[in-house]
Amino acid sequence: MLLLVAVLAPLLLGFAVLAPNRIVPPRGIAVGDVHVWGFLAPAALAALAAAMLPGRMAAIACGVALCGLLGGLDDVAGRLTASLSAARLGPAAGSWIACGALLLAARLALGRAGTGAAGRAAAAAGFVVAIAAMLALGLLGDLGLVREATARGPELRAALAGHLELVAAALLPALAAGAAAGAFAFTMRRIGGAVMGLLAALQVIPAMALFALLIEPLAALGRAVPLLREAGLRGIGAAPAVIGVFLYLLLPIAAATRAALGAAPAAAVDAARGLGFAPGQVLRRVRLPLGAPVFLGGLRTATVQAVGLVTLGALVGAGGFGVLMFQGLGQFAPDLILLGALPVAALALVLDAALRAVEDGLAQ
């Protein structure tokens, strides 16, 4: 069904959209309006062949079909925007649906083949290499998104560095504080519920409201202590975003720590105590090893949450990929919006996959 959707969506829902500039509304381009079958015919055949191939070969066929679809879009872009430097061509709704269907079909094919985390990572790396090869050969250079990325290379690199710094600045302190809170809640069971309830209450506050609530107190603190202001603690900038994200990450990390410490079977804990293990030895040799996969699951959730929430920090002057996204929204520039959104999604997926691989390795 997914492969059939991938073949039919560009035909029925539109293949591409062309905008002469950022003022004139874009117009749709159907497959029949352009001669692009040199790319699309092999892509469609590869997509249909994937339905009859075994798991890994089906995933490769989906990748070939996706590369063919992107190559077809670039071919059209090269012919329609060659004389218009401000023109941008991108995928229409049908092509976006086809891309999503092919990626999902490839993932299901790998799952059908029983491919583990390492195999899925290798497949993703292979797809990235294929896209990089197409870029190096100039087969994607005329797409609007690639043009925008080329024109804004320094901004894109600065956004990546800024986004990673903000994620690390919020996640690392939250890891220490959340783990301590979770351990306290596990040890002091009578008031542990109140601690977790307080952390859960923070999740009720919308992210933008929390960032806004932090602006004035941080600004006042910076005015009162000039040394802190010089160190970067201001009402506008990275400080409210980092502190706000830090507060949001406390609950998943604390909950994961509490669950991880309680993951060890009671029989294993009793056996360790019967062997004369001190409480610290029980913690190091029984609870932590058996609870590590549970904790990594919570850390994976917190990491992905941090990557997404930092994007909103651009609204309070924090930087990162959110700057590009909101610039695109203000200029009605879809390619600029995607230039900020797609790296955030890719970064979240990469970090999630890496932590999941470690989690699966510990669980085996």
Rank of each mutant, 00 (worst) to 15 (best):
V24K: 15
P91G: 05
A220Y: 14
L362E: 00
A354E: 03
M208Q: 10
F186D: 08
P293A: 10
L349G: 10
F246R: 03
G94E: 03
L137Y: 15
H35Q: 10
A47Y: 00
V225M: 14
A109W: 04
A121L: 12
V242L: 03
A93V: 14
I23T: 11
A43V: 06
L312F: 06
A181D: 07
A201N: 13
A170T: 06
R287S: 05
L12R: 05
P54F: 07
G276N: 13
E216M: 15
L261H: 10
L351M: 06
I236A: 14
G138Y: 09
A121C: 13
V146L: 09
L312Y: 09
I131H: 04
L3W: 03
D142Y: 08
A239R: 00
E155N: 08
A200S: 11
A169Y: 04
L336M: 10
D33W: 12
G222N: 08
A86N: 03
V34Q: 09
A109H: 12
H163S: 02
A306C: 08
E155K: 10
A348I: 11
H163W: 01
R88G: 00
R88V: 03
G276H: 07
Q305R: 13
R152D: 01
G222W: 00
G262V: 02
L342G: 05
G317I: 01
G144L: 03
G313P: 01
G308E: 04
I97S: 08
A346E: 11
L347P: 00
R190W: 08
G361N: 07
G322V: 12
R287Y: 08
F186Y: 09
V146S: 05
A224S: 11
A50E: 00
G262I: 01
Y248G: 05
G197C: 05
Q331I: 07
G78N: 04
A92L: 03
G192T: 02
L12F: 15
A259C: 05
C67R: 12
L315W: 03
A302H: 00
G116Q: 07
L172V: 15
L103N: 06
L70D: 10
A271W: 15
L156Q: 07
D335F: 03
A58G: 07
P25V: 14
V34I: 14
A50K: 00
R112L: 14
A117R: 09
T311C: 10
A241K: 00
G111W: 12
G114Q: 10
L156Y: 14
Q331E: 08
V34L: 07
A132G: 15
G141T: 09
G280K: 07
G138I: 12
A130E: 14
I243G: 02
P42A: 08
G63R: 02
V282F: 10
P25I: 12
R120S: 15
L45V: 09
G100T: 07
I191W: 04
P334I: 02
V350H: 01
H163D: 00
G330P: 11
G340H: 05
G144T: 02
A130N: 04
G32H: 12
L80P: 00
G100C: 06
V195M: 13
L362W: 02
L103E: 02
A6K: 05
A180I: 15
V31E: 02
L137I: 11
R284I: 10
L296M: 07
A117P: 09
L156D: 15
L290R: 04
M188Y: 06
L110A: 04
R88L: 06
A201I: 15
E230N: 07
G274Q: 11
L355T: 02
A44I: 09
G63E: 07
L84A: 13
